[in-house]
Design a protein around this nucleic acid. Structure first.
Lengths: 218, 218
DNA sequence: TATTATTTTTAGGTTAGTCTAAAAATATAT
DNA sequence: ATATATTTTTAGACTAACCTAAAAATAATA
């Protein structure tokens, strides 16, 4: 059994070790967890002793298979609980993160299994992030983002790359929720803002906003 | 915000300060929490500094109003989660305690409020224990227990005084679940075991079993 | 390549919660 | 009431997770 803190470290390392094969750096982890590099070094040694990460001094850290399993199971729990909070308790998608951060550390395999069943085995959480299956497989989105679309191309919103409350609230307020169909009407060369059509209404959104929306081309 | 551990101490003190006005003794708390008396003394000092308990050396400890509020709110959460686990996730009544021990420490007023609504504002948990309301009021059962009944008296099971898995499993196996109507057919003078009628079937139960069943006379 | 800047690690300390062993206070029994 | 037993507290130490400040390693730049 691992502590709350260990689980959070593993989650942070997982988050930054998806793309590259390089080890995740101490500072990146410290930043993600709002702690100091020296604390990270301490914890990494502990995780290394437990064979949950591979660690070479000054060379960053990578997850072992055991470490990855734990990280993914925590993420699975986080996302399942988010579905519960939104679908069953009627929370908004921008309100669930902090509560799920706590719930993800509840230890009970049976609970997760039953929760999954209760929620009808959802594949995505309320932000469109894929829910890992019980064996640790994750279905990542291919990263097509709205700002990649050209004039007259169309897509459906399937996720977000930025999870801040302010962004989520903004998206909801302009009708950019999961499943919404978008057509690009115009792209402004100067600042890459774009005019888009959603539900027969036109809106203009900034590059900052469009580059954080994951879409599926249609 | 209080830690997981502080909340458990407050809950333990609450548990043993219901009846008498005397302070709860260090050893009783140590026993309840599977820790040592010296650890309890330390924690009591901390809780006393925070004005959550009143403490006089060698004289035991009592909760302040602030401490009681926290204890009761943790118990409220515990029991609401137990209802969730049994009603929504189909856990058995003997399987939910350990999971609820974890869930009771999730901090979010909004979550508790919505969970309560989702569960239709239950008044009792799956073991018949009363769920404190959001203002901290608790509806205790009057303690009429099955072993107090005399021959030919009747009652309905409304709760248990012992929550061990083995007891709960036993009760379920012989059909002694909440709401069951019981008629006392005979009381054996020698060992206080009794013959009872439940759902038209007769059973014999030990004094040990009958003195832990809370009933309502009918 | 030598120097400077950045990152990472080490060294030493802190707090929360725990422990053991011994001392002090209270309770019990002769 | 004195001696004995029990309970509670103190003293000192431990681990987990964190910190600051300084040292060491690596990376970036002149």
């Amino acid at each position: 059994m691992n502590t709350y803190t260990e689980e959070n470290y593993l989650k942070a390392i997982f988050k930054y070790s998806n793309r590259t094969k390089e080890g995740v750096s101490t500072n990146v982890i410290a930043d993600e967890l709002n702690t100091k590099a020296s604390s990270v070094t301490d914890m990494i040694k502990k995780l290394s002793d437990k064979k949950l990460v591979l660690y070479k001094k000054y060379k960053g850290v990578t997850l072992t298979e055991a470490g990855r399993k734990i990280a993914v199971s925590v993420i699975r729990k986080h996302r399942l609980w988010e579905v519960f909070l939104v679908e069953k308790l009627d929370f908004k998608w921008d309100e669930v993160h902090d509560i799920a951060e706590q719930l993800e550390h509840i230890h009970s395999e049976e609970l997760v299994k039953r929760l999954d069943t209760f929620l009808d085995n959802p594949k995505y959480d309320p932000h469109g992030d894929p829910i890992p299956d019980k064996d640790g497989n994750v279905n990542h989105h291919k990263d097509i983002i709205l700002s990649d679309l050209k004039k007259n191309e169309k897509g459906i919103i399937v996720g977000v790359k930025e999870h801040s409350t302010s962004y989520l609230k903004y998206l909801e307020s302009v009708g950019l929720i999961l499943g919404t169909e978008i057509k690009v009407l115009e792209v402004i060369d100067f600042d890459h803002s774009m005019k888009i059509a959603i539900n027969k209404k036109d809106t203009i959104i900034s590059h900052q906003a469009s580059k954080n929306l994951i879409i599926k081309k249609i």
